[in-house]
């Protein structure tokens, strides 16, 4: 029982990390006022590029780097249409998702279903990893997991809330006209935020294929990008909470796995609905309990709205 719980917890942390990473990227883009619904597609591209790369250079870090470049490049193309040319963000986002899923399947044909030659190996932290139950789950993971849960959210938080650039970025998301009036380069910052988000989405894809499920198959991102977008809203556009919500989602998913392992008399497909229903409950219950939360978790005021200088 203990071994099962510990194994599930570790898997929850590992798979929750993918969502956490993608959600963190989307937080940055949305804080600048851009809804990037292309996450699913960018993750797919990142996932396949990582696998293709490690087939050439068998080093997971090289794969990760390639995936980040690919994710950033894809997001840059999206931002050219949705930010620079100011086309409809939702439309361009869905288009990016289709483009990414389609291209990734075409590119990955040669490696589909084959074992990945190099993956991220767990590194146990001495001492802490011996703790019962939580030791293996939190302190015997690969380096990416430590980065995702301990370092990146802190960096993102400091960048967004403690630096001048972060302030500018958030200003652009709240009131681009005012930001423009004080000399902030609205378009440039928005493009930058979207590309940063895309880099993290690409990394999330690499995390998926180089650590969580080490094999490429068509459509393997299977909705994780969309869930990441949902978690951002759930997290009230805060980096720390976004990462935690990824973990939470992973945990609820693990409950479903436990049900399967323990032979609960419920169909697996029904158990798989748990994380989604759980997330919905987690969104609604706190608002019922604490109505004041509503304002604190509100979206950036200009989210999803292209900025036209002439309309100032």
């Amino acid at each position: 029982m203990m071994a099962l719980l510990s194994g599930l917890l570790s898997h929850a942390v590992l798979s929750g990390g993918v969502l956490a990473l993608a959600a963190l990227g989307e937080v940055i883009a949305e804080r600048a006022g851009v809804v990037d619904l292309g996450v699913e597609g960018l993750m797919s591209v990142g996932a396949v590029i990582a696998v293709l790369m490690v087939n050439v250079v068998p080093d997971p870090w090289v794969g990760l780097l390639a995936a980040m470049v690919a994710g950033g490049f894809g997001a840059y193309l999206f931002s050219l249409a949705a930010v620079v040319l100011r086309a409809n963000q939702v439309l361009c986002g869905v288009a990016t998702t289709f483009l990414g899923i389609g291209l990734s399947a075409v590119m990955g044909r040669s490696v589909a279903g084959m074992p990945v030659p190099a993956i991220f190996q767990p590194i146990a932290i001495p001492g802490l990893s011996r703790l019962p139950l939580i030791g293996p789950a939190f302190f015997a993971q690969n380096l990416l997991v430590y980065l995702i849960f301990a370092i990146l959210p802190v960096l993102a938080h400091v960048w967004l809330f403690r630096t001048r650039m972060g302030l500018d970025l958030r200003a652009v998301g709240e009131n681009p006209a005012a930001a423009d009036a004080v000399g902030i380069r609205v378009t440039r910052l928005r493009v930058l935020a979207v590309v940063a988000g895309g880099v993290l989405a690409g990394a999330a894809g690499a995390d998926l294929t180089l650590a969580v499920v080490p094999v490429w198959s068509d459509g393997m991102v299977s909705g994780r990008g969309w869930i990441a977008v949902a978690l951002v809203i759930f997290a009230g556009y805060r980096p720390g909470i976004a990462v935690l919500s990824g973990l939470l989602f992973g945990l609820v998913t693990a409950i479903g796995f436990m049900g399967q392992a323990r032979g609960w008399p419920v169909a697996p497909a029904m158990l798989n609905t748990l994380p989604y229903l759980g997330t919905i409950l987690c969104i609604i219950v706190p608002v019922v309990a604490l109505p004041r939360l509503r304002r604190a978790m509100a979206a950036p005021a200009s989210l999803g709205m292209p900025y036209h200088r002439s309309a100032r």
Binding site: L85, L91, A95, T97, G102, V106, D218
Partner: peptide
């Protein structure tokens, strides 16, 4: 032409329409 390639083409077309729409 594979379904995946078709999906990518669909994405490209949607993107182009979105841009044309705005321009």
């Amino acid at each position: 032409i594979s379904a995946s390639a078709v999906l990518a083409i669909t994405g490209l077309v949607m993107m182009a329409i979105a841009v044309g729409d705005e321009l």
